[in-house]
Design a protein around this nucleic acid. Structure first.
Lengths: 229, 229
DNA sequence: CCAAAAGTGTTGCTTGTACACCCATGT
DNA sequence: ACATGGGTGTACAAGCAACACTTTTGG
């Protein structure tokens, strides 16, 4: 039996929309797919879904991510909610948005292709439906904020990477360049990377050592990486 | 006419719950009220309400704030959403939470009294209903984050205040002490306060000059105030 | 006189930034 | 040989934390 205090209020559709970021070819990319139903069928859209009765919004988001990328255990962060009454012309839908980071090298490419989805460089996004451009902008700001506090390479890079690759990732995220020497010193000073006895010789003549993240859930440092803003 | 894609999904009650902070007697305080309906009637709760058809969540939050404090134009910031299916034993309610800052000296005290509401020092909160303690913790973290980037005294202090009062506010927010000399220099260096030709002689023998915020919406500096964490 | 806050100055440390410089090597 | 990135060192500036010190005045 439900209290009258609840019943007198309206109920709403709740969507979860995910800004899924990946990193490939030196570019930060966003996974978009052509919307499969009206209104705006065929237009580019974020991955999304509706919250069901028995799941939290985060669970709904993880369900969407599994369906679209085949991945579990994804880095997922709650971003802002968007709730203007007329933001979706099809119905009054409140959208809770999430920012997700995935490793493009291990996601299920067939699944993405089936959905007609496509990875778009963040610098050349197409026009998006509804308010999805504002949602992406918000998620990108959150990504920058996260990246300025934590080293997020683990979520976006392959197991092994060179410091140049990590720097290029940060340059793609912040759309600015970092001094190679200073970046290297800063990153190594926080002591969460492990140097491997293996060199990448494909990207430089001299060859650069590979690094990987130390598997230390315990030592979760919280140093500031980049001054931001 | 509504697409089948929408109709096949459930709809949900959406609440907005506001963590309303104020500053009084050298303490950071939170406005709580005794819940007026079942379940958990009479238990201490955040100010909240339900989102209606024709309003955004932020509009709903402002409506709640007006109803409970009599104030418009309140500093309001979206915090996190809480959506565990069973978080409210009365019904499946998704809560969008907000962090609000108000000046206790100008709010409508009669209205607060009518509602049975009460300002609780942040250090001595009572037990709260449902997951409201987690909501407050989240809002407090957001407040600290905001306060570390922007000077938020404008939202919480009277028009005129001494630098000691501002420092005490920051000490209440971060629950730590700041060196008086260093704090003063830091604050004055960002040049958003205006020194008045008026002294407060009630809190010190020597007397301290009053300051107020410069009315410069334009010059909105974004200097970092406090290293946080 | 003394305590307590107001207000200013000094010093040492840490951090960021700019940039010079050598190293290794594929072309 | 030389261009390119790898990697290290240096020098300066900025910011911060700790703290000394002087001023003012009510009790």
């Amino acid at each position: 039996m439900l209290s009258e205090m609840y019943k007198q209020h309206p109920r709403h559709y709740i969507a979860v929309d995910c800004s899924i970021f990946g990193y490939e070819d030196g570019e930060l990319k966003l996974l978009l797919y052509p919307r499969g139903f009206e209104p705006s069928i065929g237009k580019w859209s974020l991955m999304g879904g509706f919250v069901q009765e028995d799941e939290s919004m985060e669970e709904a988001a993880r369900r969407v991510l599994l369906q679209t990328t085949g991945l579990k255990d994804i880095f997922l962060e709650q971003a802002s909610a968007f709730s203007k009454p007329n933001r979706d012309p099809g119905a009054r839908v409140i959208s809770m948005t999430f920012m997700a980071l995935i490793r493009i090298d291990i996601h299920d490419k067939d699944l993405v292709r089936e959905n007609g989805a496509h990875w778009w460089p963040i610098t050349k996004l197409p026009t998006l439906i509804f308010d999805h451009e504002a949602i992406v902008e918000n998620a990108l700001a959150l990504l920058q904020q996260k990246a300025s506090i934590d080293l997020i390479g683990k979520e976006l890079l392959p197991e092994m990477f060179t410091l140049m690759q990590l720097r290029n990732l940060y340059e793609a995220i912040f759309q600015k360049t970092f001094d190679p020497g200073n970046f290297r010193k800063k990153i190594l000073s926080i002591d969460i990377l492990e140097k491997l006895n293996l060199k990448n010789t494909t990207e430089s003549k001299k060859g650069a050592f590979y690094y990987k993240f130390k598997n230390s859930e315990a030592g979760m440092k919280s140093e500031r990486i980049v001054k931001f803003p």
